[in-house]
């Protein structure tokens, strides 16, 4: 039986203290820049990394797996909701778009 297709994922959550969106990096750090996220291509590894995130309740709230794709600068969102989380609101230059340099 061929392996079930698995669309690539990143682990994302909101930081407990600041509340902002963060992504789990390959080294296990939480980054506010989605491009630094660990793009996970394997289902088993996704489950492992999500479990790792869930064990960090002192740092983050509500971790989940979000669909993503590889881009030139790193992982990119595939759905508009995740794109807004990665960028910030559209009515003001606040959130990531104001806080991250080079974006």
């Amino acid at each position: 039986m061929p392996p079930r297709s698995f669309s690539p994922k990143v682990v994302t959550a909101n930081r407990l203290l600041e509340g902002d969106a963060v992504w789990l990096t390959p080294s296990g750090r939480w980054s506010p820049d989605m491009r630094e996220a660990d793009l996970i291509e394997d289902e088993g590894r996704a489950a492992e990394r999500l479990a790792e995130a869930e064990s960090q309740a002192g740092l983050v709230v509500g971790p989940y797996l979000a669909d993503a794709k590889a881009g030139p600068g790193g992982p990119e969102p595939t759905h508009f909701r995740e794109a807004f989380r990665a960028r910030g609101p559209s009515n003001y230059r606040l959130g990531k778009q104001a806080e991250l340099t080079g974006s």
């Binding site: 509340g19 002192g58 709230v61 509500g62 990531k96």
Partner: peptide, 25 residues
């Protein structure tokens, strides 16, 4: 913050006081 309460325990308490967690903050 000090870990005595889990998020599951804290969430109804913060909501009772009008505090939500949204997309960016």
């Amino acid at each position: 913050i000090d870990g005595s309460l889990t998020e599951d325990e804290f969430k109804p308490l913060r909501l009772m006081n009008g505090l939500y967690l949204q997309l960016h903050a």
